[in-house]
Each structure stands twice: as structure tokens, then as C-alpha cells.
Amino acid sequence: MTTNLPNELATKPHYPILDGLRGIAAIIVVTFHLAEPFSTSNLDKFVNHGYLAVDFFFLLSGFVIGYAYDDRWQKTTVATFFKRRIERLQPMVVLGMTLGAIGFYFTDSTLWPLIHTVPVWKMLLVMLIGYTILPVPLSLDIRGWQEMHPLNSVGWSLFFEYIANILYAVWIRKFSILALSILVGIAAIALAHLAITNGDVSGGWTLNVEQVWIGFTRTMFPFFAGLLLSRVAKPTRIKNAFLWCSLLVAIVLYMPRIGGAEQIWMNGIYDSVCIIIIFPLIVYLGASGVMHSQKENRICKFLGDISYPLYMVHYPVVYFYVAWISNNKGITIAQAWPGAFLILIGVVVLAYLELKWYDEPVRKWLRRKLA
């Protein structure tokens, strides 16, 4: 989900508004996960379309990867590209899995009654596999939620992010605009079919055929649509773009469910329109935006800086929150919201501290080692 450019590419014009939008979406993801325990299904979630933030992240990543690397392949190699991706992505992957492992046994609850029976060696094995971002088999589902990464659920999207990066670097970067447009068109049809058939695009975090297909379908269109957009879009100068784009992102992700159990196709159409039309429009507007003040620039930089750490470390904290909700049957969202709000503030602060004390120093060290 990260879109930061490597230092070597800093001479290119930067898109600070896109950084800010990534941070806004990451914060909404946290609110989505904090509200989720009070729902019984996808039909009655309070932050109903928060799952679409992942699709927005994929599109942002495709756009910025294309912008950063498309015209540099004569000067760089596939190996160098992957070194830079590993340097950028893996430190927070490792930290997120480690925090999940540290907190694992303390999240024992009525929701996960068998956590205390999991041997330490098995939990450590899941952690070590998680460090590689490869999904664990269902036989190592130590939490019972059928997650690819039981210690940090959000790792599934990084797995598919890597797949998209691999496809780009070894093959799709060579596509002409026509060939890429055809690929994106086919991917859009597949995405719309998935959304309308299932009622939404939510899914992709379980290692079975159905869920892996969902994850792959969710990745292919937005990532490579972002790549195509980076090649064909000619940004203009749009005033107040950060404000309007932030509002659009919030409206899309906080929108209540469209249609009910009898008309799931309606919500599927909503998801399709958001991912295929609205998200590319938001990214185009964000890339075209003009910063009006240093304050706005600092806000966007802060949001962009914390976005990836926030995404990668909030769920190990959310496990504690979900366990607390589970152990206090009957608690309502009205009673829980003060605690949820404190967690939201806490994980934002935690993300910033991890950025400064861990992520940036480790990336700097890796940059020297992998140079």
C-alpha cells in the first residue's frame, strides 16, 4: 500500500496530496476495523465500505510505481527494483508480525478459545513465515479466523502488493499503452463480475482458491489501472484538491451498504463504480492538486509518513480491542466508542514513533547493505 518514492527519484516532481490521501484512507481503515466487531455481516457494518481502502491503496501504488520507474528501466535492473521494494516494505512487515506475536497469547478470549493451547514453537513458526509475507497454510491457522497471517491480518494485502510488483517488473512494464489498456479492461470486467456476483469485493485474506482469486482480482485492476493512469494522465492545476479529494475518499468509504440481502448486486455495482471510475478520478485530481500553504504541505507529509506504519501496526492492537468486545457481551458501540477513539489516537502516535525510531533507521541501514 506504500507509494513513497525512493530517495534516488526525489528529483522528480512529488505528489504530496497523494501522500495525504493515503494517510486519510489508512485512518479510515482503522475506524473500519474498530467498528467491525459490532456487525454481524457485511450488510450491517458501521463503516461499511472501509474495505475499499485497500483497493484505493493498490491504485495509488500502481500510479506511483509507474511514475517512479517507467522511464528508468534503462538505468535500473529488476534486481535493483526488488531491493528497493524490500527496503521499503519489509521493515514494517517484520515489525507488524513481531508485535502480533508479542500480543498473541494476551488476546485469549471467548472469540478465540484455543489460543492458550497453541504451542510456542507453532506461533514462532507462523511469525517467521510472516516475516517473508508468504501466506501460512490453513494447518497453521493459530487464531481460527482462516487468515493468511494470523499474527497481523493486514499482511494479506502486502502479499498481493508484492505479486503486482513482480508482474510489473518482470513483464507488464514492457506493455505498450494499448496492451496495458486491454489488460486493464479485462481486469475491470473480472472485478465487476466479482463485485456484482458476491455483492462486494471484500475478501482475499484466506489461503484457499476462492479467496486467493478474490485477492488477485482486487489487485489486478487497481494496480495496473494506476500504472496506466500514470502513463496517460496529464495533470492540470486544481485548487483545493486535497480538501475535495479527502471528502470524496471519506464519502466513498463511509457510505452505508447499498441494497440489502435480496439485492446484493446493487452494492456490487457501487463497489465497481468506486474502484473503476471514482478512485482513478480521485488520484488524477490529487496528482493535479496545488498546495496552498506550508501548513497543508506539512499535513500531507505527516499523513503520508504515518500511513504505511499505521496500516501495518494497527491490527495487532485491534486484536486486543476485539478480544475486549468479545469478553464483554452486550457492549454497544455507544459504550465502546471512547475506548475506540483512544485506540485510534494511540495507534496514530505509535505509527509515528515507529516511523522515526524504527522504520526510517532500518530502511537507511538496509539501503547501505543492499546498495
Rank of each mutant, 00 (worst) to 15 (best):
M255R: 11
K369A: 09
Y321K: 06
N165L: 15
S139K: 10
F106V: 03
P235T: 08
L183K: 09
G289W: 13
D71R: 15
Y270V: 09
L111A: 11
V283W: 00
I214W: 00
M97Y: 05
Y319R: 14
A371N: 08
A241D: 09
W213A: 07
F224G: 02
F82Q: 08
T332D: 06
V232D: 05
V209D: 09
I343Y: 08
P316C: 11
G289P: 14
S109H: 10
I258S: 10
M97H: 11
L253A: 07
F32E: 13
L5S: 14
P256D: 07
P113H: 07
P37C: 12
L191S: 07
K234Q: 15
I306D: 12
R218F: 04
V317S: 05
V54C: 09
F279W: 06
S326F: 14
A351Q: 01
A225L: 02
A225R: 02
F63V: 02
H292C: 01
V322W: 13
I182W: 14
I196G: 08
V154D: 02
I133Y: 07
G260T: 05
A250I: 14
Y319G: 00
I343K: 02
E147M: 07
P119Q: 08
S39E: 05
I65S: 00
T217Y: 08
I129P: 05
F224D: 01
D359W: 00
A187D: 13
H314R: 04
Q211N: 15
T80I: 06
G66M: 01
L370I: 11
T117H: 13
R231D: 01
W357D: 02
Q263T: 15
Y131T: 00
C300M: 07
Q335T: 10
L194H: 07
T236D: 03
W357H: 03
H149C: 12
F46K: 03
P309A: 03
A250F: 07
R173I: 00
F32S: 11
N240H: 13
L344H: 04
Y69E: 14
A10I: 00
R368A: 15
M1A: 11
